[in-house]
Design a protein around this nucleic acid. Structure first.
Lengths: 222, 222
DNA sequence: CCTACCGATCGGTAGG
DNA sequence: CCTACCGATCGGTAGG
């Protein structure tokens, strides 16, 4: 009954009778399935947490069988690390792009405008569409091994390093008071905490949050 | 070999030969063991997360066998809820005490001083000694059922309600700008995030953090 | 990437 | 509160 002739999409007989039909050359070998796994894992890790999510859940969400994720990732922990690294790479890329675009549009961006761009981009990465990766990184890092944690922290330092001169400039102009290092930590806290309460499309927009943060943290607004 | 005479601490023969010796009347029936379980659970839930902590871990940490926690709590989730409710009750009690003490010491506390008291108390509850309960509540609430979540949120609203008039007063005086509701969320974010980076006894004290927060969020400091 | 499977662990319970 | 236990689930693997 279920003994269909084992042929590929092109009608040629295949060597292996088991498994689902192979994709065409366009769709395979380019890591599509790996990306599907990453996306599914990010979503579930965010919703339920790392420990509460089974690799079977992830496999099902990606349309695979229970053992298949281990073809792409050595173990569950490596999948978590990959989610975080992917998230940080995207975030850093987006951040660099946003800064560059703003610098081109308006000549000689003020420190205040720089911070606005950074905050707005951070909120987008954190709360925008397709953004499960960074919340997972923020809230599940204790599930990583020490080695993987260091790799993630490397990218995180890189991401945060962009903020340092901006905050320093604001401090020099008297627009930001107190220890800039503590200010950075508290600013990130204020923003990252939005993961816990922000509801997309309800009352407050990301632009609203951006302006509120600037108004709250900076003095002498122009 | 291990057939010791089954007698209680008073030397009287006991009816049951199994289990460890009963405590004297002073030590039992007052919920000591339950408190031990709560403390152990709070510690482990904070360190490893709820899902990654087994009830066996908790039992061992409290000096019990694997089945014993279920004598005190209906299930693992009820233990989590109890940790959170205990934490919120302590926090609210401490907060009320701190506000009262400050009001008695200095007549007519300024809004700024009120906020200082609230922030300082919040940091103590969050980062001080014996403070695993509130971090667990902040970071593990998604593991609760809807009913339990509502019970916790009730206490949380009560706790946060104390802050509302203080922030409103600061806003009225121009010391706090923008939407006070967003300001409250961002302030809590800035403080709660310290759970992720604060290291007790290293560089920054809780007083340092308190002053930094006030300086960062308030305008026109006196 | 699927099938079939394993050993370990987990939350929870009956009975005392 | 302990003993002894159960069914379910989980991460992971061998072989194709």
């Amino acid at each position: 009954m279920n003994a269909q002739t084992p042929t590929g999409d092109d009608g040629e007989p295949r060597k292996r009778a088991r498994g689902r039909p192979r994709k065409t050359a366009n769709e395979r070998d380019d890591g599509n399935r790996r990306q599907d796994l990453l996306r599914a894992a990010a979503r579930l890790f965010r919703q339920q947490g790392f420990a509460a999510t089974s690799t079977r859940d992830i496999a099902t969400a990606a349309g695979m069988r229970s053992g298949s994720p281990f073809y792409h990732f050595e173990n569950k922990e490596a999948l978590l690390a990959a989610v975080m690294l992917e998230g940080m790479q995207r975030a850093t890329g987006r951040q660099a792009g946003a800064m560059q675009a703003a610098a081109v549009a308006g000549r000689a961006l003020s420190a205040r405008d720089c911070l606005r761009v950074l905050v707005r981009n951070h909120l987008e990465v954190l709360l925008g569409a397709e953004s499960d990766f960074i919340p997972v990184m923020l809230y599940e890092w204790r599930s990583l091994s020490e080695v993987q944690r260091q790799a993630v922290n490397e990218l995180r330092r890189e991401y945060e390093a962009v903020w340092v001169p901006v905050l320093q400039a604001l401090h020099d102009r008297g627009e930001l008071q107190g220890d800039t290092s503590l200010a950075r930590l508290m600013l990130f806290g204020a923003l990252n905490w939005a993961v816990q309460w922000f509801e997309p499309g309800r009352k407050k927009s990301l632009d609203d949050l951006t302006e509120a943060a600037l108004q709250l943290f900076l003095k002498e607004q122009g």
